[in-house]
């Protein structure tokens, strides 16, 4: 079950700069923690976040263990045309989770 929360304005004026917020449930295990048996807890983090707007990549981020659990990222985009904004999170194992939202531009 994808556990993501994205916020994209439903409607925007052409050329308007809109704020986007994206969050995903993930422990962002740093790899520096010690488990109860004294051994290291293996690193498991979201390594990369990308946002595409009608298929074109418009924003991305490289994440390190210092990003908090359940990573939250807010950024801005210029509303150009109506369409779909897609979000992809990729973890250390290369596994991806996605979310998407539509925006109407007039």
């Amino acid at each position: 079950m994808a556990r993501t929360l994205v916020n994209v304005p439903k409607v925007a004026k052409q050329g308007e700069v809109v704020e986007i917020k994206a969050m995903i449930a993930h422990p962002m295990e740093t790899g520096y923690r010690i488990g109860p048996n004294g051994s290291n807890i293996a690193r498991d983090i979201i390594r990369r976040f990308t946002c595409t707007y009608n298929g074109e990549e418009v924003f991305s981020a490289d994440l390190f263990p210092a990003v908090s659990a359940n990573p939250f990222i807010a950024f801005t985009l210029v509303a150009t045309t109506s369409g779909t904004i897609d979000f992809t999170w990729t973890d250390d194992a290369g596994k991806t989770q996605t979310a998407s939202a539509t925006i109407t531009v007039n």
């Binding site: 556990r3 929360l5 917020k21 969050m23 659990a69 359940n70």
Partner: peptide, 15 residues
Amino acid sequence: DMSNPGMLWVLQGEQ
């Protein structure tokens, strides 16, 4: 609500 991480669990609960 858009930045409160607890909402991730609320949304999961809704599903």
